[in-house]
């Protein structure tokens, strides 16, 4: 672990001002915000993250869950994962988000982890977390050890020749399906970023994971108003029953009328280099009858572009089944 300076920010502008001194807002940045610290401090102990300055944002407020004017929900950046998962409005109107949060980590971690920290949590790729091994995300240009290595848990969608690391967050998958918006405040004012545009594909710069610029602070996330008549579910598949990241997960938001899908939003986790929206499958389902054949076809279509690695070919099949079953659960075709 490197030496670092710790500052407790008292106001949002102060926090932004300090962080803006960074040359980059990406994860190798020397000045970093710390929220729950469950990702950042962990990686600092492993020497994977080596900031020289930490700005503690835990005292900025930003921890409320409020109704927005349009009837949606505004979730402060520092709302803890457990609080968000157990919020009555979330449990009622955005069940998929509650389920996704509760499927992640452990009760202890969820009590500390925050919305913005979860949004920005880093990959669990074993080579990223091991400084003795090459990783383009950690050390640009050093190579990708995961390609041709132990890549069973890694991505099959959105990969590049430089990086195949999965975005590990469960929450992000739900937010993608709910079409959330990420709100930032930086030196030039505030910005609102559609969830889909917030995370970047690795391409040739896997070290650059989001659109954040130096100084940008995530202040809150908003959810659009709940659509009446929709059901939403999160299904997570993994080796053991608890306390493990997803091998494949699916967040589905559907509205069914007259035996047909009227509204469909699908996103998947554990398989993409970023939280993955399944737009082709959404289109295929919309207007189609709610039956086994349709669901299977759509799920197969969703994984059409998958590019597996040496050890994770099974994820194509697993993810297909995961999405199909999440749809069965959401439409009442299955109960377990």
């Amino acid at each position: 672990m490197e030496r670092f300076q710790y500052t407790r920010a008292r106001t949002v502008p102060e926090a932004i001002g300090i962080a803006a001194q960074s040359t980059t807002a990406q994860q190798s940045a020397p000045i970093r915000f710390v929220a729950g610290g469950t990702t950042l401090v962990d990686l600092m102990k492993l020497d994977v993250e080596r900031p020289t300055r930490l700005v503690d944002i835990n005292h900025l407020g930003l921890n409320a869950i409020e109704r927005t004017a349009d009837g949606g929900l505004k979730v402060g950046a520092l709302v803890r994962n457990s609080a968000l998962a157990q919020d009555p409005a979330v449990m009622r109107d955005y069940r998929v988000l509650s389920e996704a949060l509760l499927s992640g980590a452990s009760a202890q971690l969820r009590n500390v982890a925050t919305t913005s920290g979860n949004l920005l949590q880093r990959t669990r790729c074993m080579y990223f977390r091991n400084t003795a091994m090459a990783c383009n995300k950690r050390e640009p240009g050093s190579g990708c050890s995961a390609i041709g290595g132990e890549n069973r848990t890694l991505a099959i969608l959105g990969t590049s020749s430089q990086c195949i690391a999965t975005n590990p967050s469960d929450m992000n998958v739900a937010l993608a399906a709910l079409e959330a918006t990420v709100h930032l405040q930086g030196t030039k004012g505030t910005r609102a970023i559609a969830f889909q545009d917030f995370h970047l594909l690795p391409g040739d710069t896997p070290n650059r994971e989001t659109v954040l610029e130096p100084g940008d602070l995530v202040t809150h996330v908003t959810l659009p108003p709940p659509r009446s008549g929709t059901t939403s579910r999160y299904l997570k598949l993994r080796d053991r029953a608890s306390y493990e990241f997803a091998l494949a997960s699916a967040a589905v938001v559907v509205e069914v009328a007259g035996g047909r899908f009227r509204y469909v939003r699908l996103a998947m986790g554990g398989i993409g280099t970023k939280p993955w929206r399944m737009t082709a499958a959404e289109q295929a389902l919309t207007g189609a009858p709610v039956d086994e054949a349709t669901i299977r076809q759509a799920a197969t279509l969703a994984l059409r572009d998958a590019r597996p690695q040496s050890q994770n070919g099974f994820k194509v099949e697993l993810a297909t089944r995961c999405l199909a079953h999440a749809l069965r659960l959401a439409t009442g075709m299955a109960s377990v």
Partner: peptide, 14 residues
């Protein structure tokens, strides 16, 4: 890991 010769999942998460 065949290339490094290291037990690669050497922690209680992996």
């Amino acid at each position: 890991d065949k290339r490094y010769g290291a037990p690669i999942n050497s922690n209680l998460a992996d």
